[in-house]
């Protein structure tokens, strides 16, 4: 990869709760290349959002804390820099879009006010008029009709899809280098989801930003992502480009995810869920966190005693990492199964 714009190394995030210490993220490492779309998938509680939020300093500390890790952005470590420098970057070079646009927008301020605020905070010399002009431009860019008029409306006067467009506009207002989208379509219905995907694509064309797409929607990942990180129980379990992940998954969890998808090209009587429950993050299972639900573990001791390291299972031109003791056994399984997938 060319020089990554964001490098996460050995990130660990913990939360102190009444029931114990929750290890939300453990030893997570991945890179983000400039201009690429990196999808991070996993169940709720897999740590996919927390890893990004913690890197931006958006988790409350206490009860959260980051005992170890680095997050290097353009040469600076986000986790150790001063809070004012981090604030400079937040909303500027690194921007974030959140899941539920209704609650993520301040109900008593106009849309225009909130977008202009993002502009003014990072460009102190700008006049209010200029900020407003730019706001209208941004709204038009993301496809909000009658932007000139709607800029003075309140969030509750926008539909769900419009609100998400406004959030995207807010995020790209300062030409970010990294755009983090945390479940951007989860709260929207399917037809609107498709529209938002187009908006995200347009946003990327406009800003050439790298996008971190955090989602549990594999369809979205298939459509947008260049590479995919699969997370489970706070760790990275698989990392590869999108085709490989879908066609040749080499981790039992990823395989389970693919198998559980509904497919247009196959005749299924029932969907196949992954058996079992997501693990407790306070007292995770010893060894591989997935082993109680794993199809290929077959009770082997090493699964229960050693945490599998993330190691390369692919070739240099197509990097593919998997955290499974028995990743080799899965090599042909994925290919055979995914034969008809495109």
């Amino acid at each position: 990869m060319a020089q990554p714009i964001l490098e996460i190394r050995d990130l660990t995030v913990e939360f102190d709760t009444e029931d114990g210490v929750v290890r939300a993220v453990t030893g997570v490492s991945y890179d983000l290349a400039p201009g690429e779309v990196l999808g991070i998938v996993g169940e709720s509680g897999s740590g996919k959002s927390v890893s990004m939020l913690s890197v931006l300093g958006l988790i409350p500390k206490p009860p959260g804390r980051i005992p170890s890790g680095h997050a290097t952005f353009e040469g600076e470590d986000l986790l150790t820099m001063s809070s004012s420098r981090l604030r400079d970057l937040r909303g500027g070079r690194i921007a974030m879009i959140f899941q539920d646009p209704m609650t993520s927008l301040n109900p008593v301020l106009t849309i225009g006010d909130q977008i202009s605020e993002a502009i003014l905070v990072h460009n102190s010399g700008t006049s209010d008029d200029d900020a407003r002009k730019r706001t209208v431009e941004l709204l038009e860019l993301v496809g909000v009709p009658f932007a000139e008029r709607r800029v003075d409306q309140y969030p509750h006067e926008f539909s769900g899809g419009m609100r998400q467009r406004a959030m995207i506009a807010m995020a790209i207002a300062n030409d970010p280098a990294v755009l983090i989208a945390d479940e951007p379509t989860t709260a929207l219905d399917v037809t609107i989801q498709a529209q938002i995907v187009e908006v995200l694509k347009a946003a990327q064309r406009e800003t050439h930003a790298a996008i971190v797409l955090i989602t549990h929607d594999l369809g979205l990942v298939a459509e947008l992502a260049d590479r995919v990180v699969v997370m489970y129980a706070g760790r990275v379990v698989e990392l590869a480009d999108v085709f490989t992940i879908f066609n040749e998954p080499r981790h039992p969890y990823t395989i389970g995810l693919m198998n559980s998808l509904a497919r247009l090209d196959a005749d299924l009587d029932r969907l196949e869920p992954i058996p079992g429950q997501p693990p407790s993050l306070i007292t995770p299972p010893p060894g591989c966190a997935f082993h109680p639900r794993c199809a290929i573990s077959q009770g082997r001791a090493i699964c229960r005693t050693e945490v599998p390291p993330l190691k390369a299972v692919g070739v240099q031109e197509a990097p593919h990492d998997s955290a499974c003791h028995f990743a080799d056994e899965l090599a042909n399984l994925g290919a055979a199964r995914a034969g008809t997938a495109s």
Binding site: L58, R90, A95, D100, N106, V108, E117, V121, M167, M170
Partner: peptide, 28 residues
Amino acid sequence: SDYVRTARAKGLAESRVTMKHAFRNALI
């Protein structure tokens, strides 16, 4: 609330987040 988190994510100073976004809404 989520919109306070958004305000922080925009890079606003904590005092601004508290006064403009949190306090005004809480006052209602």
